[in-house]
Design a protein around this nucleic acid. Structure first.
Lengths: 133, 133
DNA sequence: ACAATAATAGTAATGATTACTATAAAGAAT
DNA sequence: ATTCTTTATAGTAATCATTACTATTATTGT
């Protein structure tokens, strides 16, 4: 994988934020620095960077994928209403033990795991209350 | 939500299998019993059944969503190579305690969680070995 | 049985993602 | 540093899963 300006900037911008942007949101972020970059380049690099373990692809919900500049294992909470995804600060250790158990019982060669919590974010909880009145 | 023949059959067929089919796979399954059903009906009902808690929608990976006829909380393993998803028989209890912790630290009103393991299924492990020779 | 209304089949439209191709840039070899 | 080989890019077209639309049909409460 060669080091191109486009790839560098995509990775830099993604590492700057914790907002788990979609591909077109990354495109907008990057376009401020590289106005001529094409959307296809963004998609291709997000895929390559993900395959290389530099970022994470979140196959969460909705129609669009989201991308996470933090490749380390960490967990997420997704709001069922607005789709927003936030990072959680939970110890990963507890789950690592389970990987071995899964490998044994399933025959899978386990390379990692993903854990997410679903619910309503604080903002959307307030919206719900308004509607109840 | 009315009880229509189409909705019944979709739910029945989905409950029969543990293969986590995609929408078009469900369509093919159901079409054997209801040859005139339309794909749009399948999509709409999968969404409604999921919203009603009768089935689960798995926003795993790849381009297509997968559906699980088992609405109870249970965990999955997905093969990174062939995309196959299998059910795991793991105790859910260990994770339930974490939901409260997440709610406290994040402010989310947590309603559930999803845990999946990633790796290579037994079949694809064999394929890898063939290629190594 | 009738009326009100939700659901369906069939089709068209949408929208995220991928594929294609000529040109440009990166890294290796000279 | 210059040339060469190959990968990556921009711009555009194509794909494909999903959603929206509409006239007709089926369900359910009265």
């Amino acid at each position: 994988m060669r080091t191109t300006r486009q790839r560098q900037v995509i990775l830099e911008e993604l590492r700057k934020v914790t907002s788990h942007p979609t591909a077109d949101e990354v495109y907008e972020m990057v376009r401020k620095r590289l106005p001529h970059i094409s959307l296809g380049t963004v998609y291709r690099n997000l895929e390559l960077l993900s395959a290389a373990g530099e970022i994470q692809t979140l196959g969460l919900a909705g129609t669009q994928k989201r991308f996470d500049g933090n490749p380390a294992n960490h967990y997420h909470a997704r709001c069922l209403k607005c789709g927003r995804v936030i990072d959680l600060d939970l110890p990963v250790k507890a789950l690592n033990g389970l990987e071995d158990a899964v490998a044994e019982t399933s025959g899978f060669k386990v390379v990692g795991h993903r854990l997410k919590f679903l619910g309503l974010c604080p903002r959307c909880q307030k919206e719900e209350q308004k509607q109840d009145r």
